[in-house]
Simulated scan of single mutants.
Amino acid sequence: MDFTPFLVGFVIMSLSSLAIYAKGSKAPAAVDQTYMHATVPFIAATSYLAMTFAIGDIVKLDGTVTFVARYLDWTFTTPILLAGLVLTALHGRREMSGYLIAIITLDVLMIVTGLISSLAVAPVIKWIWFGWSCAAFLGVLYILWVPLRTINTKLGGAMTGAYLKNVTALTVLWVLYPVVFAVGPEGLKSASTDATSWAILVLDVAAKVVYAFYAASNVERALADTTTSRDGQAADPYVGRV
């Protein structure tokens, strides 16, 4: 097994965490996004460092490997990314707490059941748990695209466009993860462990680094447009914190 993608991932994620923080907005209305997005690649770097040294790797009876550190990474990073989206959707309003609890619970269940699917050797059991993980993922997407999207649209303003762009980008990227799982050694075994490791690295960089800059840019542009259009007299909690 080639450990190069893990070492490359550690370097990229470490440097990206610093870059996101350095380039991110420190304005009160956007600084929370900067901290969240900078934290995500730092956690990922920790995971990649562990995988570089094969810490947490479980070799199963069929010879395939489950990288537990990868699932631990997702257990922490995906809720942070979702929190950023919920914050954007609801303009920082207090009612976000209920949606946060629901979506993070489904998200963590998605990761945990995905881990169980990876650890399972019997095909029937593996695919049952994979299906249940996908069901939790559909729940996450439902909350993002139905109630949160509806509320975001009703609130109006420039933040509506920012949320739509960000949720679309993250949805497209996240849909690819179960596809890689399904064709990789943890699923149909159509792709090798090395090929899957490189594929997930590319997805991780896109979902945790490229997305961070893209999402922050959309939010900052929306905040600037809203502030300008309301001459600084905004009632929106997001703008009021500028």
Rank of each mutant, 00 (worst) to 15 (best):
T196N: 06
M36N: 04
A215Y: 02
A222K: 01
I128D: 02
S229T: 06
G161C: 10
Y71E: 09
K126I: 11
I58G: 08
L82A: 05
V59E: 15
V68H: 04
P237V: 11
M110H: 11
V65G: 03
L119R: 05
V175T: 09
F67W: 06
Y71S: 08
Y211V: 01
F76L: 06
A22N: 09
S47P: 09
A215N: 04
Y99V: 02
V11R: 15
I58V: 15
P41L: 03
R93Q: 11
R149Q: 10
S192T: 15
G84D: 05
L164I: 05
V40M: 07
F67C: 05
T113L: 15
K189M: 10
V59W: 11
W127K: 06
T39Y: 00
V65F: 10
M1H: 09
I80N: 00
S17T: 12
W132S: 01
A89H: 05
R241D: 02
I103Y: 02
L18C: 12
G139M: 06
T88P: 04
V31M: 09
L109D: 00
V146C: 05
V121I: 14
H37Q: 09
T171Q: 05
W129L: 14
G56Y: 07
M110P: 04
I103M: 07
I111N: 04
D57K: 00
G63A: 12
I12F: 12
R241C: 02
G232H: 10
F6Y: 15
T105Q: 10
I104R: 06
T66A: 15
F6C: 02
V68G: 04
A234L: 08
A215D: 05
W74K: 00
M51C: 10
A38D: 03
Y35N: 07
G63M: 12
I43E: 03
G9T: 03
F42P: 02
P123C: 11
W145K: 08
